[in-house]
């Protein structure tokens, strides 16, 4: 790293003071972004926010310091080493090999089945109406009125799906396994409150394939806040 880059980093660190703004994410959201607990799109927004907000950049640095010292964030792969060396050094190698062997046995036992990679669910939104004229609302803030459903289309036909709902501040979160478009149930309103704004996305899950996430959408729950 050049002297100039070191100067830039020092100047950036020295400017990490300032009042929070009205659009600053909650500290929990910053923590979750750093620890990869937020969906990629929302994580990206938090990162961009820290570029413009010294206060949240300071909160990000604080979270990084604590998470790194506590060993909560796994070390990033060494880019200098060839892929096969990184693979051999990976701490997950033994369980991964054991898992692969078990999977092989299971595949031989159950017969050939080659699951392809999952594609993320698309066309997610609030579906209103039934029959010949259903209406799909994809705009942020659509009201999930009684009778409407959270709907999506899955191009790869995963075996099952999960809907993740969470409040903008990250304080409240619900993960609901679903087998078909989700009807508003009492648990959602009880968790977030009537009239609340809630972010949601769908995860497609299929056996050993990792879950593929849809875009994050925003809905408003029915009722007065």
């Amino acid at each position: 790293m050049s002297w100039y880059e070191q100067e830039l980093k020092a100047a950036f660190a020295a400017g990490l003071e300032g009042p929070p703004g009205p659009d600053c994410p909650a500290p929990e959201v910053i923590w979750d972004a750093l620890n990869l607990a937020l969906p990629p799109r929302q994580r990206y927004r938090v990162i961009l926010h820290t570029a413009a907000c010294p206060h949240c950049a300071q909160a990000w640095q604080a979270a990084k310091m604590i998470a790194d010292e506590a060993g909560l964030r796994p070390p990033a792969p060494d880019p200098a080493a060839p892929w096969w060396q990184r693979w051999l050094r990976a701490p997950v190698l033994v369980p991964a090999l054991a898992g692969s062997a078990a999977l092989l046995v299971a595949l031989v036992w159950l017969g050939p089945r080659e699951p392809g990679p999952l594609a993320p669910p698309v066309d997610s939104g609030v579906m209103r109406g039934h029959g010949d004229a259903p209406q799909l609302l994809t705009a942020d803030g659509a009201v999930l009125a009684p009778g409407a459903t959270l709907s999506w289309r899955d191009p790869t036909g995963a075996s099952h799906h999960k809907i993740v709902l969470y409040s903008p501040d990250g304080e409240r979160r619900l993960e609901l396994p679903v087998s078909e478009p989700m009807v508003l149930d009492a648990e959602v309103v009880e968790t977030f409150g009537p009239g609340a704004t809630v972010l949601w996305y769908v995860v497609a899950i299929d056996g050993p394939n990792p879950g593929a996430e849809s875009e994050v959408r925003t809905i408003t729950l029915p009722g007065e806040p």
């Binding site: 830039l8 980093k9 950036f12 972004a33 750093l34 990869l36 990629p40 994580r43 990206y44 990162i47 820290t50 950049a57 990000w60 640095q61 990084k64 964030r73 990033a76 792969p77 060494d78 880019p79």
Partner: peptide, 13 residues
């Protein structure tokens, strides 16, 4: 600038 290495930044992004 926050001190993340390039591979770490790649993972976050």
């Amino acid at each position: 600038l926050q001190g993340h290495s390039v591979p770490d930044a790649a993972r976050l992004l």
